[in-house]
Structures are given as structure tokens and as C-alpha cells.
Amino acid sequence: MRFPPDYPYSPPSLRFQTKVWHPNVYENGDLCISILHPPIDDPQSGELPCERWNPTQNVRTILLSVVSLLNEPNTSSPANVDASVMYRKWKESKGKDKEYENIIKKQVALSKVDAEKDGVVVPLTLEDYVVKAKPPENNLELTDFYDDDYDMDNDEDDLEDDSSNEQYDDDSGNGDES
């Protein structure tokens, strides 16, 4: 992901470093996704202005959109027409047409080899993807964040003490005494 000098007013770009056979990924690895398109009105694109980049987007929202697009390609506006046609054929056949699936499996296998070279562990199961909370290192009880040891039982006493401060002398000199 590369960020332009005027980010967040202009969108970053995203390019895959490894080969990705996907309807919305160009041959050079650039990703075609509405959220990363500049916020201009382009009736030819078929995108609504609200689908394009805006400065409230951040890395998290970009990555969530990318994951969503990888899982559900936009075949109506493909960056890779061949992959789009193959994907639609695979989906319409309910997975019986294996051409698209075989390409994806080969790419996944190659990416695992690349990941291992880089010392990256690729999760293989849903359980591997889920981040498990680590138990606290010490045995201290977790307490309420807002618990500041303020004694709530004495609040009424404190209010009664403060009520005496409400009585004051009227030094305004307007002669009204109540």
C-alpha cells in the first residue's frame, strides 16, 4: 500500500506483490476497487460518488473492503476479464468447473512457499485465523477501568457538606434580601 503526499485527501494505491488471479486485480498486481478511486464524479465508471474514496477511510476500512472484494469479486467491472469470465463460469457451475479453482489452488500453494521463505506462518484453518486472548502475565485481578477507589458510600455526606456553601451573603447592594 502506498500513500500519496496529500493523504488522506487522496486515496492510497494497493498492489499485490505476488501473482493474483482475480477478477479485480490487474496483471501487474494493482487492485481495482471503488474505495481507492479518487473522489471525482465519473458517470462512465458506474460507481456512485459515495463508493469512492473519502478522507474518513483508513487502513482498516481499506483492508476490510479488500478482504470483502477478494471473497466476492465485482465481475461487472473487472480488471482481469479472463479471470472474471472464469470466475462466473465456476460460480454458475457451483464449483463443478474446476479451471478457476485449480488456478487459485496453485497460487495459494506458491504463496505458502513464498511465505515460508519470508518466515511467515500462513493460517490453514479458521482456528489459526482467530486471535486468542493471552491470559494476564500476573495474577492481579482485572478491575473496572473507572474504579478509582472513590468511596461511593460517602457521596451523600459530601453533598450535605457542599450544601452549606450554597448559602451566601448578597453583596450586590440591590437591597433584595431573601
Rank of each mutant, 00 (worst) to 15 (best):
residue 111 S to M: 13
residue 81 V to W: 15
residue 30 D to Q: 10
residue 124 L to K: 10
residue 89 K to Y: 07
residue 135 P to K: 13
residue 28 N to S: 13
residue 50 C to I: 00
residue 139 N to Q: 06
residue 68 S to M: 04
residue 149 D to H: 12
residue 48 L to T: 02
residue 63 L to Y: 04
residue 76 S to P: 01
residue 79 A to S: 03
residue 102 N to M: 11
residue 85 V to F: 03
residue 106 K to S: 14
residue 135 P to I: 13
residue 81 V to G: 14
residue 41 D to A: 09
residue 118 D to C: 14
residue 149 D to A: 08
residue 64 L to F: 05
residue 49 P to H: 00
residue 59 V to D: 04
residue 39 P to K: 14
residue 72 E to V: 05
residue 139 N to M: 04
residue 99 E to R: 15
residue 111 S to E: 07
residue 118 D to I: 01
residue 106 K to C: 11
residue 92 E to R: 14
residue 128 D to K: 05
residue 97 D to L: 04
residue 63 L to D: 03
residue 71 N to C: 14
residue 124 L to A: 10
residue 28 N to L: 13
residue 88 R to L: 06
residue 72 E to G: 02
residue 96 K to E: 15
residue 28 N to R: 08
residue 89 K to H: 11
residue 132 K to V: 11
residue 88 R to N: 09
residue 102 N to H: 10
residue 121 V to L: 03
residue 78 P to C: 02
residue 98 K to H: 13
residue 64 L to Y: 07
residue 112 K to Y: 07
residue 120 V to M: 12
residue 79 A to P: 08
residue 121 V to G: 01
residue 108 V to M: 12
residue 95 G to T: 09
residue 91 K to G: 02
residue 141 E to I: 05
residue 145 F to N: 11
residue 111 S to W: 08
residue 116 E to W: 07
residue 57 Q to G: 05
